[in-house]
Simulated assay, not measured.
Amino acid sequence: MKILHISEDIYSYSCIDNEYGYAKKVIAFGISANGDYICFDYRKCNENPCIILMYHDDFYEDENGDTKMVTSHIADSFDAFLDMLYELSD
C-alpha cells in the first residue's frame, strides 16, 4: 500500500498529461501497489470514459515520435469497473 506524504494529493497523481502529452484526456484516479496508474480515458468519449491501466514503466513511441505509456483497457465505464470489484451474492 502506498502511503502519501502530506504534500502529495490526488491532483499530483492525476497530472500525467503534462509529461506525456495526453492533453488532460487521461486522468489518473488511483495507483496500484506497483505504481501503475488506474485512469479515466476521455480520448474516445467525453461523457462516460472507459477505465484503463497505464503502466508507469512501460513506454512506446507514437506516430509523432512522442513517448507514451503503454495502456490496457480495464472496463468500458466506471460503473463496469466497480462491478468488477465484487461479486453479487444470491
Rank of each mutant, 00 (worst) to 15 (best):
M1Q: 11
K2N: 13
K2L: 10
I3A: 10
I3T: 06
L4G: 00
E8G: 14
E8V: 00
E8L: 02
E8R: 10
E8K: 02
D9R: 02
D9N: 15
D9E: 01
I10W: 09
Y11R: 06
S14C: 05
S14I: 02
C15L: 11
C15Q: 09
I16N: 08
I16Q: 05
I16W: 02
I16P: 08
D17T: 07
D17Y: 03
N18F: 10
E19H: 11
E19I: 03
G21C: 12
G21N: 07
G21F: 13
G21P: 08
Y22W: 12
A23E: 14
A23Y: 09
K24E: 13
K24G: 10
K25C: 15
K25V: 03
I27H: 15
I27G: 09
A28K: 14
A28N: 15
G30V: 00
I31P: 06
I31N: 09
S32V: 03
S32G: 07
S32F: 06
A33S: 13
A33V: 04
G35P: 13
G35A: 09
D36I: 00
Y37N: 05
I38G: 12
I38F: 14
I38L: 14
C39F: 04
C39E: 12
F40Y: 15
F40L: 03
F40K: 00
D41I: 00
D41S: 07
D41R: 00
D41G: 01
K44Q: 15
C45E: 09
N46Y: 15
N46D: 12
N48F: 07
N48Y: 06
P49F: 15
P49I: 01
P49W: 11
C50L: 12
I51S: 04
I51L: 04
I51T: 09
I51K: 05
L53T: 05
L53H: 04
L53G: 05
M54K: 13
Y55R: 10
Y55M: 04
Y55I: 00
H56F: 01
H56L: 07
D57F: 04
F59S: 10
E61W: 08
E61Q: 05
D62C: 01
E63W: 10
N64P: 06
G65T: 11
G65F: 14
D66H: 10
D66T: 02
D66R: 09
T67S: 04
T67F: 05
T67E: 05
K68Y: 15
K68G: 03
M69P: 07
M69F: 06
M69C: 06
M69E: 06
M69T: 07
T71E: 11
T71F: 10
T71N: 08
S72H: 09
S72N: 14
H73S: 09
A75K: 00
D76H: 09
F78G: 12
D79C: 01
D79I: 00
A80F: 08
A80Q: 10
L82V: 04
D83G: 05
D83Y: 02
D83L: 00
D83P: 02
M84W: 06
L85S: 08
L85F: 03
L85C: 14
L85Y: 12
Y86K: 08
Y86P: 03
E87H: 03
E87S: 08
L88R: 12
L88K: 10
L88D: 13
S89D: 08
D90Q: 03
